[in-house]
Design a protein around this nucleic acid. Structure first.
Lengths: 265, 265
DNA sequence: GTACATTGCGTCAAAATAACACATAAGATT
DNA sequence: AATCTTATGTGTTATTTTGACGCAATGTAC
């Protein structure tokens, strides 16, 4: 976590305290929440955080330094929780219901850290949060909790427990957006290992969309995009015909992400 | 404009002063900007504001009362500038570049109103803005300037002059989003009068998309959506074959807006 | 009436999509 | 080692959607 004025965190687990002590360095009432998607064991995973001061889980989030773009702040959150850089990250919506924040929740956190309520007013005020979603490589991700008071974990999207505040809505909106954007851009580059099979890629699409696709039609459509390179290599140790391995043609992939798939009117 | 505590605006054109006097009632560092689209004379129009303290035009915007949802605040901006209610309004992106605000511009405004710079710190700080776009009926809109120091006007999208700050980017992003969303929802309900012809609707689509569409294919596609009711009436005073009039089937229209057009994977 | 402009309604070929059939390969089973 | 099981690789075909275009109909202008 980037701190202003190079101040060190002297009290572990007091990230919040440090921010409060430097609150003039942060944009007031504004936060970032990241929905970080991964893919493993044919399941869509979401990186969630469990803190000791609540029974519920939360999306990884952070605040916005006054001198930083919100996009940069989102990159910081992503990097802080996953150790990853250069990842696909996209702003999808801003959540600003007047009562999306609960003073009770905020005060419980302040209480947990032993911060007097009047010192924590900045934190307990009304917050608007900008939602970002990221697609990351599950295996390259090293979940990084900030100190001992939290657990950072990959959770199956199907078994996400109750989340704090409106984080469930944020998560749902992120997935809805991702589903929509599958029509506008290819997906997979960050979510799969470098070498993968077409069935694996298909499972990824099926998992995101939440429904089955026809194998043969999927192959045709995905190959037509022209972003895949067929490797001269097959997957081994499978109890059936060995599927071919593919990799993304990164150059073409980036181009299509940039220009979008052709659609519509 | 809604004011807290029922305070009256005693000094005309001092909306800003009033807000500064009650700044604790507003979300700090957060604003709303609305891209309000209209359609007239076969041209896409944007509602813009020209203030006396700048050579450039601006998007209508506002601040967010701490007790209001950002969506409500956007409705307030829209209603305040157009007198309209119940209009299609959609959040499309949040703009949070660190240097999107210029202290020079803010100070020029404060200067214009004779507000001392130290009193105007709230206003001159870094702002993040949430962008909304609206589709409104040009003829039902009564542009409403706030006092004598500003002009509110419909400007042809093709001849939008230089805008302040990043408002040009906000406008462009709004139109990009609208173009994309034409694939996901029908458009026209708020932009056209109650009775309209298919060629008029087509011109609207062409104007938004910035390119010609085939008449016959357009008819087929738009009728297939099932939201149009053919009326037993024809447009008069045209120098050629009188086109039939149509209206939207509001019930079906709302349903399709809600459920979306079928597309994609 | 004739000219003109634009609408209404249609056709047809091309492209995209959906549904389905069959041979193949690799480990597992016997 | 022959066979079974399972999932892959590569088709084909019918259906739907899209794009490009032809032509008659209708209202005003002259």
């Amino acid at each position: 976590m980037r701190l202003s004025k190079g101040i060190l965190i002297t009290r572990i687990n007091h990230m919040l305290k440090t921010i409060l002590d430097n609150k003039e360095e942060y944009q007031p009432g504004l936060s970032i929440d990241c929905v970080i998607f991964g893919f493993h064991d044919n399941q869509l995973k979401v990186l969630l955080i469990k803190t000791k001061y609540s029974d519920k889980w939360a999306l990884p989030g952070g605040f916005v330094p006054v001198n930083e773009d919100i996009d940069e702040a989102a990159v910081t959150v992503l990097h802080g929780r996953t150790g990853l850089k250069g990842i696909f990250l996209r702003q999808f919506s801003t959540f600003g219901a007047a009562r999306r924040c609960s003073v009770d929740v905020s005060n419980a956190v302040l209480d947990f850290y032993g911060i007097p309520l009047d010192e924590g007013k900045w934190y307990a005020s009304r917050f608007v949060t900008v939602g970002y979603y990221a697609l990351v490589d599950f295996l390259q991700t090293v979940p990084q909790p900030e100190g001992k008071n939290e657990i950072v974990e990959w959770i199956d999207h199907n078994s996400v427990p109750e989340l704090i505040l409106d984080h469930r809505q944020i998560l749902d909106t992120a997935l809805e957006t991702l589903r929509m954007e599958l029509n506008l851009m290819p997906v997979g580059y960050n979510l799969l290992p470098e070498k993968f099979t077409i069935p694996e890629l298909q499972k990824l699409y099926e998992t995101i969309l939440g429904r089955k696709l026809d194998r043969r039609n999927f192959l045709r459509k995905i190959m037509a995009i022209g972003i895949l390179t067929k490797l001269d290599e097959k997957k081994s140790n499978v109890a059936h015909k060995a599927p071919n391995l593919y990799s993304f043609d990164k150059e073409k992939y980036e181009e299509v992400v940039k220009n979008g798939l052709t659609q519509g009117w």
